[in-house]
Nucleic acid binder design. Sequence first.
DNA 1: GCATTATTGTACCATTTGGAACAACTTGAA
DNA 2: TTCAAGTTGTTCCAAATGGTACAATAATGC
Lengths: 161, 161
Amino acid sequence: MPRRKEKRTHQDLSTIFDMIEYPDAFRITYLANAVVFPTYDTIKKDFGLIRAEYVLLACLSHYDVLTAQDVSRISGRPRNTVGRAVHRMLDEGYLARTPDAKDGRQATLRITPEGRALHEKIAAYLKERQENVLSALSAKERHTLSQLLKKAALDVASKDS
Amino acid sequence: MPRRKEKRTHQDLSTIFDMIEYPDAFRITYLANAVVFPTYDTIKKDFGLIRAEYVLLACLSHYDVLTAQDVSRISGRPRNTVGRAVHRMLDEGYLARTPDAKDGRQATLRITPEGRALHEKIAAYLKERQENVLSALSAKERHTLSQLLKKAALDVASKDS
DNA sequence: GCATTATTGTACCATTTGGAACAACTTGAA
DNA sequence: TTCAAGTTGTTCCAAATGGTACAATAATGC
């Protein structure tokens, strides 16, 4: 175990990478914390969307029509969080809501052109960020990592129904 | 793009896995969201620690002596969050604080045997969870993934100094 | 030595978050 | 048909989070 000599920095993490009892989970978490959440901060600052709002936008940009409940189920976030995001995005004009004629409880949501344009800007930013994060890997390594992550993620997705 | 026919579920994510503009970042985020954060919820429920408190415990279980500021730098969390966790963990007896004789501003923190015992229990739980998440991969795939994640994570860690 | 600047830990506050309960509506069974 | 149970969207509330500012102490420059 490292003994204290001088100021600890973020770099000291490298020793934990090997000492930790659950190295893979830790590395995944580390990448997510170091990359994804600062990214959400940037999205909030530069694009004015909080996380729940961007999740909603991303869902609607990949599905044609969804209800708020669908978004909740797909994204795994609670209904009230999604509901708040829906109202905010309606006010901003990034999505449109149509009451369902057949079911008076629910309303169908669609993304507007403005919403799609916003999502494209944010997606481009996220992609750039992804490239930066994985720039240490070769093309072949990138491909391998991508496949392994997909395999693991799909397995997880299949487990919690 | 999928058109609406019936209820969307969490499983619909599998289509997004390929459609998304930043597939690797998305998969990493997905694994972190599906695995790590529910895990934090479990840690809170079963062990009574919030995330900041567990981060503190994990840091102190891998370094001999740290100040609150060290923990903040290593973990990347703000000082006030760490400070709150320190007081809570002191009250619970999971760590000990000694005022620094040389620097009146700071105090050195150490984990207590109780804290170490708690961390071992939580670490065992996290390890089990990790195994469950990666169970779809073969031993060889696990090893490859582990190496690639380490390479990417260390590169990221080296970038933000 | 003295004044300015930097650092540590803390307090305050606004924001985000999600659990629980609720009303409106639909579905299913008797 | 009618009533119980389930679903959708919303409101309310408590908890966690992190930015900002602050007091105390240390380090630096003159």
